[in-house]
Design a protein around this nucleic acid. Sequence first.
DNA 1: TGTTTATATGAATGTTACTCATATCGAGCT
DNA 2: AGCTCGATATGAGTAACATTCATATAAACA
Lengths: 311, 311
Amino acid sequence: MNVTHIELRHLRLLQAVTEAGGLTAAAERLHLTQSAVSHQLKALEDALGLPLIERATRPLGLTAAGRRLLTLAHAALPQVDAALRDLAKLKDGDAGELRIAVECHTCYDWLMPAMDSYRDVWPGVELDLLGGFQADPVGLLLDGRADLVITSETVPRAGVAYAPLFGFEMLALLPPDHPLAAKKWLLPADFAGHTLITYPVPEDRLDLIRRVLAPAGIKPARREAQLTVAILQLVASRRGLAALPAWAVAPYLERGYIAARRIGKHGLWAELHVAVREADTARAYVADFIETVKRDSFARLPGIRPAIIAP
Amino acid sequence: MNVTHIELRHLRLLQAVTEAGGLTAAAERLHLTQSAVSHQLKALEDALGLPLIERATRPLGLTAAGRRLLTLAHAALPQVDAALRDLAKLKDGDAGELRIAVECHTCYDWLMPAMDSYRDVWPGVELDLLGGFQADPVGLLLDGRADLVITSETVPRAGVAYAPLFGFEMLALLPPDHPLAAKKWLLPADFAGHTLITYPVPEDRLDLIRRVLAPAGIKPARREAQLTVAILQLVASRRGLAALPAWAVAPYLERGYIAARRIGKHGLWAELHVAVREADTARAYVADFIETVKRDSFARLPGIRPAIIAP
DNA sequence: TGTTTATATGAATGTTACTCATATCGAGCT
DNA sequence: AGCTCGATATGAGTAACATTCATATAAACA
């Protein structure tokens, strides 16, 4: 067959496979099963009469044909997305207001750049970032004091809709020469007798305490710090241990400033979600903000994975 | 639904609809039913939440959304086609030889420009045009003296494959002030007593005689001319009538040099097909030549329509 | 050499895109 | 008006295809 029946779906697939570095990971991102991805890729290769990926090599490589098709994907898909955005603007208008409340301290790291790329595309949308700690950020939506909340909880609430952003791993931080650094991963007991350095938030907002230490009956001393760099500095100077998202510490790890270890064998994973008023889910500039953040995050943040928990 | 599930199929559809100037004509080009086109367009409009075409206006117009999506189609589809061509070259190589025999005299008008655009894309393919009249052009394929034949016949022959190009209308030509010009279309009897000016080919190769005049028992005198302009000039100077493809006379009609009338109420339609050796149908540079000619013809030639006769 | 992780495959299922048959609509005619 | 013709719309049935589930195979790691 020569009149090849290629579709955007195939381009998105190839892009996801190369970006995710494998079929299984691509499947997660596309919200498909691994089987579907394998079948679809094979069907595409059969239709073209050419293999697209190098099997049995890790990390997965592309064939010349695969690279050519990926080039097409990189050229064509952004055009398609831009057109869809323009259509959305035609439909709903291109102006609006987005007051954003953020629950997690480290989120500013990726939120700022994401907001920048969003602003390029929706210049008519007024972006505001709400500062300060909020006891009940989702409540701000219903108060009308915020339009969008980035949160780790998805407690169902009338009139509020949640959309998953991504899952990320919390890593335990310790000085590079600390005795515990010899272990591949830390167990709850390893934290006993150490001070825990955290952001100034209640204990039930700290995943490490709520999901790991408290169930094991361990209650370490706490010391609070406002800024990520302050926490890192306290850890490096042996004042205690901390737990931060993997993406937030990646740059410091590279420089050997501190060490990071998994919490439990499979790691401690948390998720971020976006909450908006249900009435706003249909607004194009709202939906596209969520899309932008997600795309930006997966492109920029190391070690994140698609969210698993149903919103 | 905001995560719009747009596909290349939709872009090709919109492009076909605007180029063909209607759903029915687009359906023919896409080898679909009119129903399929209508359903698909509606599905797309529903998914986007925006109408794409102005219903109930002739000629059919696009909405702002339709124009934006068409812009996308014009940008993206050529990129896709180029990528597919590159993949075809990767698969089969990019060199070959294409000796082309042409049965119809007027075909050179569109074949030359089509060959030019083809050459841009397949510089490695050696193009040759076989000159002179051939009694049995398709036989040249099996002799190995030609690789591709443009013909109006599709007589099944072992080892030969046919692909349809397009259908076109033969128009009767007459001087603008001729009495017959008063009629909207001509009947076989109208040709009686007039000289028929034709290319120098046997009678059974002339559609007007074989399919219209001979069945009606009319045998007009004939006069032959080699060149299209010579035929036109003879008609204009009242030496007789002629019949030529609509596209070949369109430029002269505009200038009022001659007049043209339908032959029969629904017109006399003929078709052109491409014949190649069956073994060559799988060659990418052969298949793409046929595609190029078809695309080029539909873009350039007025009054042609997809072929109907099964090859 | 088992153990884990990633990919492939066959059969069953669900979801679409498509066709067929028919209805509706609008423009041009008498 | 009413009629006819060409074009588009629509509903129901079908065919084609994408996806899942369950399982096999293969590669990587200790």
